[in-house]
């Protein structure tokens, strides 16, 4: 494997409803024609760790762009303050998410070294949002990292506002890689199996991996949920998947 050069900067582009939002671009400089990946950050925000994910994907040879889904809630604030503002405002609405991801995709397609192929990856709440985006927009590759409430509805006692999105699975536009932890309860192994059954029944290309000794958030290297073995294996699968599909 050769070393790659990447270039990173904050960029602005139109998202949902034509609103100008910001995003973190990590561009693979050495590639003359390459695929792109939209990186969807988790609910704690458009943070340093998610930007590191974008850089890692650029280091694989792809262009990556992470839209700041909380930009409207607090344009000039730090990521944790913006996440808190978004939380107080009720979170990221699904239609706004789809519009912002569409804007990020368009920005990536406009880059001089874009081959036109497009992937999306999301973690935690972003896993559900990656699935949702791929049911409403054109993607070649979709990675859902332990997204909850893709299949199941929140329990009645939960005052949660999100709705499951598996009923849109017939519209899933790209191949799906799902990465889960056996110890996770949201999504539980049973929910993962049900999603796999739905995708199989619809003849959707998919590949699921559930790791032992891992629960929710096993990729998060700065959190106690980090599981190095699952994360390392997961990253290998993500790179292989994007290399095949993009």
């Amino acid at each position: 494997m050769r070393d790659r050069s990447i270039y990173c900067e904050t960029v602005n582009f139109p998202g949902f409803n034509g609103d100008i939002i910001e995003g973190y671009l990590a561009k693979s400089v050495g590639e003359t024609s390459t695929g792109s990946v939209v990186v969807i950050h988790h609910m704690p925000g458009y943070d340093r760790e998610t930007k590191a994910i974008a850089r890692r994907i650029a280091d694989m040879g792809f262009n990556a762009l992470c839209p700041n889904l909380h930009y409207r809630d607090a344009p000039k604030a730090q990521s944790d303050d913006a996440a808190a503002a978004s939380r107080a405002n009720g979170g990221v609405p699904d239609d706004r998410l789809i519009g912002d991801v569409a804007g990020a995709s368009e920005y990536l397609r406009s880059l001089d070294n874009s081959s036109g192929t497009m992937g999306v990856i999301g973690y935690c709440s972003g896993g559900r949002q990656a699935f949702l985006a791929a049911c409403n927009l054109d993607f070649d590759a979709v990675v859902d990292c332990y997204g909850a409430f893709v299949v199941n509805s929140p329990a009645p006692e939960f005052p949660i506002r999100v709705l499951p999105v598996a009923d849109q699975a017939a519209n899933l536009s790209g191949a799906l890689l799902g990465l889960f932890g056996i110890e996770d309860t949201f999504p539980s192994p049973d929910e993962v199996k049900e999603l796999e059954r739905i995708l199989t029944s619809l003849d959707k290309v998919h590949e699921f991996h559930t790791f032992e000794n891992a629960g929710h958030g096993f990729f998060a290297a700065d959190r106690p949920s980090y599981r190095i073995e699952a994360a390392n294996k997961g990253w290998v699968l993500v790179e292989e998947f994007f290399n095949r599909m993009l």
Partner: peptide, 20 residues
């Protein structure tokens, strides 16, 4: 350093979010 916490944000809605 726990997976979930009880979070309290005290703010002034007219001020920048960084004053949280």
């Amino acid at each position: 350093m726990t997976p979930h916490t009880l979070n309290i944000d005290v703010t002034n809605s007219k001020m920048d979010a960084s004053y949280r």
